[in-house]
């Protein structure tokens, strides 16, 4: 990895952390507590298209670890990792699959992130009834992932010219 690339990865990690902070200021409810727009995912989606997969994964891990250490707790980090790593894995595979645009990849990421967190929640509280949030979380992931994907679709050509 060149120094230039390392600096870019660090910059994207910082941007993802800032986005995670900023989105707390944007009310985005659906009436379900804890639903977020997933602005940080905008950085991860773009990183998957502009950088090698392992560097996108590194940005995701660093973002979650740093945010949790600074503002959260160890248990929060486990919930975030469950959603974050599952969505990264799904988006990485979707990106390699022919026929999906960046919007489709982002939607799959949003939905899988929510399902990863729901699975951990069911395991932690040991109550299967919590899975009743399944339909709401699929819909929420579809909408948030779609919005993030559309923004990524617009931003990507600009970043392509910058030769990250």
């Amino acid at each position: 990895m060149t120094a230039r690339r390392a600096a870019h990865c660090a910059m994207l990690t910082a941007l993802a952390m800032i986005f995670g902070y900023v989105e707390a200021l944007i009310p985005f409810g659906f009436g379900i507590p804890g639903i977020k727009l997933g602005l940080a995912n905008l950085v991860i989606v773009l990183a998957l298209y502009l950088l090698p997969v392992y560097q996108a994964a590194a940005i995701q891990v660093m973002r979650i670890a740093l945010t949790s250490f600074l503002f959260g707790s160890l248990s929060m980090m486990l919930y975030s990792l469950a959603g974050g790593m599952l969505s990264l894995l799904v988006m990485g595979l979707m990106r390699k699959t022919k026929g999906f645009s960046i919007v489709g990849v982002s939607i799959a990421g949003g939905v899988s992130h929510n399902l990863g967190q729901l699975t951990v929640a069911v395991l932690v509280v040991q109550n299967l009834k919590v899975a009743f949030y399944f339909p709401a979380l699929i819909t929420a992931g579809l909408v948030t992932g779609g919005l993030i994907g559309m923004v990524a679709y617009r931003v990507k050509p600009v970043l392509d010219q910058m030769e990250l």
């Binding site: 026929g99 999906f100 645009s101 919007v103 489709g104 939607i107 799959a108 939905v111 009743f132 399944f134 339909p135 709401a136 699929i138 819909t139 992931g141 579809l142 779609g146 559309m150 679709y153």
Partner: peptide
């Protein structure tokens, strides 16, 4: 912006949400 497979993905996810919502509602 959207390709054919994206729309299929969206349709599948909406169907999954609708079916699970119906199941949850009946429960």
């Amino acid at each position: 912006m959207f390709r054919k497979k994206d729309l299929i993905l969206i349709a599948v996810l909406l169907a999954a949400a609708a079916v699970s919502a119906l199941l949850a509602a009946s429960a």
